[in-house]
Amino acid sequence: MVPCSIHDTVRRHAFLLVRHPAFLGAVIGILAALSQSLLISAGGPEAYGFCVACHTRDLVNGVTNILAGSSLALAPISKNAVLPVMSVVGVLIGAYVSARVNREHAVKKGSFRDYLLYFLGGFLVLILAMVFGGCPYRAALRTGYGDIIALLFIVAMALGVVAGTVFMLKRAEREEA
């Protein structure tokens, strides 16, 4: 029984580790630095290893440029490479595989109003993130790289989350009354 229980302990800890958000935070942080160390010769900017908003912009604008011959702005690394950064495609594939393997895939539909709100939300969030130069993830990478402006973004974002939460609580109270 003893070797078996050691084996089980290791497996249980590995299982807990993979399911802990802090493990993923550490993985993204280290691999973003590795990615810059490998790829920076293709072009900047720095602290660009992982970003959902910027990499979506690079993917859409880069593919549009290739297909339509346009010249929409994108990061130098995506402009110089044969294809733009593919992180967002990867996230979609990885999460899909995980949801399928772990039987957590379920189609959830919403109303037309939901779709419109989410579309507008996504539209605004991309614009706002690009005005700053990154989504919450690149803000974290930039902070780790030593950018104080990015730290201000994170503080403001935390305040925005608090304001949004208070707004939702107030709205819920009104609907109950």
């Binding site: 993979v18 493990f23 993923l24 993985v27 993204i28 691999l31 973003a32 990615s35 490998l38 790829l39 293709a42 290893g49 992982f50 990499h55 690394i77 995506s78 490479a81 044969v82 294809l83 733009p84 950064v85 593919m86 992180s87 967002v88 495609v89 990867g90 996230v91 979609l92 594939i93 990885g94 999460a95 899909y96 595989v97 995980s98 949801a99 772990n102 957590e104």
Partner: peptide, 17 residues
């Protein structure tokens, strides 16, 4: 660039889910 970022994304997506 596309290959490394794709692999990185797959790993991040899996762990994020």
């Amino acid at each position: 660039v596309p290959a490394v970022t794709l692999l990185l994304g797959i790993l991040i997506g899996y762990l994020a889910q």
